[in-house]
């Protein structure tokens, strides 16, 4: 992929059909996701890749300011860990949010999401950091002991072996009891992405 490749030919570079077969999307839906991808990837730097700032802007519309949660999602989407999202990474990651994607994938994604330090466990400090972030997001200030109580309650429920951290097995069990924790892991729009972003992209095999 040379840098002189125009956006149009980059679309051709991606084999939509194989992306469709690897993900929950149909061919038409991959194309529709491509329309979305193009929109996001050129909102700040028009280089056909999604940068963190662009991802933040698309989600929060806040001119790309850092955000603990958005940045975590971005890092998880960035499968190649090179600081940008290409179309393949975008489609594959977004596929986890498809209503038909297996719950196990969604559970794993949330586990990695909340394991801020990548230690393989969700630790107390991480939870506290996220609780503080969400309260800040809501402009809500609570006394420290209330926050500690909130974190404590969560660990009492999730940390079944009481070793002070939540491992993947404990997380699976916990999410099983609290299915609404996966609510934001499903984007209903993905079911009808073809109508939200009609694409009619040219480069497709004629089937009819």
């Amino acid at each position: 992929m040379g840098c002189s490749i125009s956006k149009k030919s980059k679309a051709n570079y991606w084999d939509f059909a194989s992306l469709a077969s690897e993900t929950m999307f149909s061919l038409d839906e991959v194309e529709a996701v491509y329309v979305l991808y193009k929109k996001v990837s050129c909102c700040i730097v028009d280089d056909g890749l999604i940068h963190k700032e662009e991802f933040r802007q698309a989600l929060l519309r806040n001119k790309g300011k850092p955000d603990l949660f958005v940045d975590r999602v971005f890092d998880l989407f960035d499968l190649k860990r090179n600081g940008v999202l290409d179309f393949g990474e975008f489609v594959q990651s977004l596929s986890i949010f498809h209503p038909k994607s297996p719950a196990a994938d969604k559970i794993l994604f949330t586990f990695n999401l909340y394991d801020l330090q990548h230690t393989g466990c969700i630790e107390r400090e991480e939870v506290k950091e996220m609780v503080l972030a969400i309260l800040k997001e809501s402009d809500l200030e609570l006394p420290d002991e209330v926050i500690e109580e909130i974190v404590e309650n969560a660990f009492n429920e999730a940390d079944s072996n009481q070793d002070g951290k939540i491992d993947l097995e404990e997380w699976k069990e916990f999410v099983g009891k609290n299915p609404s924790l996966l609510k934001n892991m499903t984007i209903p729009y993905l079911m009808d992405v073809s109508t939200v972003f009609p694409s009619f992209v040219e480069n497709k095999i004629m089937l009819i």
Binding site: L59, L60, F69, V73, T110, V127, V131, I134, I150, N184
Partner: peptide, 14 residues
Amino acid sequence: NAFHIISMSEGLDL
């Protein structure tokens, strides 16, 4: 619990 409110974050609403 804590995770419920965390999951309500705008940043996690794709």
